[in-house]
Design a protein around this nucleic acid. Sequence first.
RNA 1: GCGCGAUUAGCUCAGCUGGAUAGAGCGCUGCCCUCCGGAGGCAGAGGUCGCAGGUUCGAAUCCUGCAUCGCGCGCCA
Length: 552
Amino acid sequence: MKDRLRQQIGSALQACFDNNTLHSGVVPEIQIEVPGNPEHGDFASNLAMAMARAERKAPRQIAEALVAALGSCDFLSNVEVAGPGFINFTLTPACWYEVLDEITDKQDQYGLAEFGRGRKVQVEFVSANPTGPLHIGHGRGAAVGDAVAAILQAAGFDVQREYYVNDAGNQVATLGRSIWMRLRELNGETVQFPEDGYQGGYIRELAAQLHEEEPAAAGYAEPEAVKRCAAFGVSKVLTWIADDLEAFGIKFDNWFSEQSLYDRQMVEIELAKLAKKGLSYEQDGALWLRTTDYGDDKDRVLIKSDGSPTYFASDVAYHMEKFDRGFDKVIDVWGADHHGYVPRMKAVVAGLGHPPEDLEVLLIQMVNLLRDGQPYTMGKRSGNFITLREVVDEVGRDACRFYFLMRRSDSQLDFDLELAKRQSSDNPVYYVQYAHARVCSINRNAAEQSVPLPESQRTDLSGLVLAEELALAKLLARYPDAVAVAAQNCEPHRIVYYLQDLAAQFHSYYNRQRVLVEDAKTTQARLYLVNGIRIVLANALNLLGVDAPERM
RNA sequence: GCGCGAUUAGCUCAGCUGGAUAGAGCGCUGCCCUCCGGAGGCAGAGGUCGCAGGUUCGAAUCCUGCAUCGCGCGCCA
């Protein structure tokens, strides 16, 4: 619709140049926006104001000339110059009826875009260390990562979801030591629990399981015992994590092991490439990466003077390999407390010769859990944090995912558990899902009354004359834009806002007008409209990983 | 100290990348159930967009400075 209008304006502009009403010959980008105020029409363009300088003419004068050149046009019902020089366009109702046909024809394909076609993107998210259960913060990262992936898919990208498993390095050894200590306690020993050990109650669970499955384990000598405990712990914890994520509706295409990088000598190989490019150097017995060449405030150590690699080294190798795997764009979802690491990773990407935008890092801010407005912090399992599982079990998957996506991911989020469970309009999830269920309910009623559901292209929509009906159709027409903007910015919350807007307008309409009325033509047209709403609600909810229930 | 991010209604937050009279939800006030699901709806009050400059036809949005808050600044992971 917008494109049609843009073309029309473009040719009007050309006509003005041709007949010399305008002289500059400068063709600016034609911007078309949807005005906030409906009195300003369906679309507005600031073209005349943007051209004022080059033309050395008053914007309104330019606008008048453009409007004159536009002539009459079958899909425009009104064109006027307004305000400082805006051109406002009002489309005929038939244009909006077409949108309903499009939705009905495309069904779950409505809203998909093409601009990502042919591009491979990887979204890496959660990637929590396999040393304990997922907590609520990981949950937000999971919901955001999965939604971003879904939105990018909807925009045409070829998307892979990946989990990076930090199964090498110190924290795994710490897990092993922690389990071993608890294991020895089970055998009646009194032990000094390490200061940096993991305190959570789940360590005792792991020890007890190991004790049962492998009673001999407690008798192993120190290095083997810790190694055995660590391996056992990692594999069990990864199972928990996978189960929790599955219960949350998230499936990864790939689980990528950090250890596998070392096993395949990839860290050495990739670091050698950097050295060859002159991006690293030795100093004080350590190997450094020149990240300052690309905007970092300090060079970073890759290999410590004792010969062991830093965590950064494997991260560098990992990201180098991501690009080797052919991704055009790589997205990392991190906790916001890691924001200081963004410049150095971007530096790596830049050093490899990619534009820094090829790596996008989404920072996820903290979640403040509340219960009836009061801070809620007690975790049953871990002692000091709330697990994702606890929250999903309490409020349900849908509410949990929806809440995690309600705010921009880089701003903090208040999550009230009681509100999330409430079955009323205070609760945005229910409010939106209920709108969908309501349309389904109308359909059921229609079926009971033997009213047929309207068919695509064959429905006479001239019964849709109310301003609120056209407004709803216009909102439906804007859904593909909402998806595109959400994809361009990796911002799932835009979909949430869209949904709330659509649900609100639908509820308002429903409350004022009956769909199933005496007049068959009106009934058919209204059924067509509300089913368009149903389809878009379902499509949008699907992007967020939230169900669109037929009954509640 | 340096860097990053924030600052919009009483509270929690949007604001389509510079447009017209700055929006939503919650809370507050007052209404609406002979109605396809009231698990809903309508109306109202509420603002110096942190402060001060600048850029231009036009700024919550871009630039500079300041204030307040948060976070990050290991040969840790």
